[in-house]
Amino acid sequence: MTDAATQVPARRDTLADQVYEQLKQDLFGYRLLPGDRFTEADVVARTGASRTPVRQALYRLQREGFVMVHLRNGWQVRPVDFAHFDALYEARIVLELAAIERLCARPSPTPAEALRDLSEFWLVPESERLDDGPYVSQQDEAFHCRLVEAAGNPELARMHVEVTERIRILRRLDFTQGARIQATYDEHAAVLRALLTRRVDEARRLLKSHIEISRAEVQKITLHMLHTSRSEW
């Protein structure tokens, strides 16, 4: 009896995770558009899962700010609020610039030691650059998280991870165009070269410019996708 009692919750958690991941992919892929309304029954029909894991997945997405629940009116994808995303990007800039100063001021490990893995990926000849948008998007996020992590302040890194998660749904759009992928390689390489020689002011300027350019691009792409996409629901 004990074994059965411990197995049931584990299965429900797994199903909820699967529904959560599927819904998140629908959100990230703009198959669920900002402002779209839907019900738990819609998700049940789409995923084949029962109401319990569906509800768990939806409330998890609600906590993360992706969807809203309306009493007696079902669920809604949270509309795009560019002012909100701008505030998150500003917070990200503050955190990353602070991390750069701290990283360059640390005697050990040196920036070259702390960022060796990033150098191996981003400081490569153009012929060795990747053009896989989703994968480069993951590496871009890892680049910025690694910069903050290398600064050696766990609380700074924790706050940065939280902001990163909340802007991911828009930020990933920057890697749907080949030119932006190549620009990211160029911009990351410039930031790294400045960091490796402890040119902190230059590194801060380059990083701030890189983030601001990316923010402007994803807003343009988002507006375009909102005009051209159609919900599959």
Rank of each mutant, 00 (worst) to 15 (best):
R215H: 12
E232Y: 11
A91I: 00
W122E: 11
Q25R: 14
H210N: 14
P125D: 08
E96D: 12
A49T: 04
Q18L: 15
S108A: 15
L32Y: 15
L173W: 05
R199E: 14
T14F: 15
L123N: 09
K220Q: 14
L32K: 14
A10P: 05
S127P: 01
T228V: 13
D131L: 07
P134R: 02
R180G: 07
T6V: 01
I211E: 05
R31G: 08
T47F: 01
I181K: 04
F66C: 03
R215L: 11
T52N: 15
I169T: 06
F121D: 01
D140A: 14
V161G: 10
R146W: 12
Q62E: 14
P111W: 01
R230N: 14
L15K: 12
G178T: 15
A190V: 03
T164W: 00
P111F: 01
L61T: 10
M159P: 00
A105R: 13
A157T: 11
F66M: 04
P134T: 06
R106I: 03
P109N: 10
H188A: 13
R46G: 08
D140P: 10
V218M: 06
W122I: 06
L130T: 06
E101S: 14
Y20P: 09
Y20C: 07
D3N: 03
A190D: 09
L58R: 09
L71G: 02
Q7E: 10
V163E: 09
I100D: 04
E120G: 12
H70Y: 07
E90S: 12
I213G: 08
S209K: 11
H84F: 06
D36L: 14
T39M: 04
M225W: 15
N153M: 05
I93V: 12
F28M: 09
W75I: 04
L170D: 02
T176N: 14
A112Q: 13
R168Y: 06
R199G: 02
S127V: 08
Y30G: 08
D17F: 10
L156T: 03
E120L: 11
E212W: 03
R12I: 10
L173I: 03
L123E: 13
R116W: 08
R102C: 03
D201Q: 05
I211W: 09
D13N: 14
L71H: 08
E232V: 15
F82G: 01
V200C: 06
Q139F: 09
D17S: 15
Q25D: 14
K24S: 12
H210M: 12
S231L: 12
A190M: 03
V124W: 10
G152P: 10
L58T: 12
L95I: 09
D3H: 05
P107Y: 04
L32G: 10
I169F: 07
K208C: 11
V200F: 00
V67R: 02
E101I: 00
R193T: 02
L115E: 04
Q56G: 10
I100L: 14
Y135C: 02
L15T: 09
R198L: 01
P79V: 04
C145T: 13
T47R: 05
I213S: 11
Y20R: 13
R166D: 02
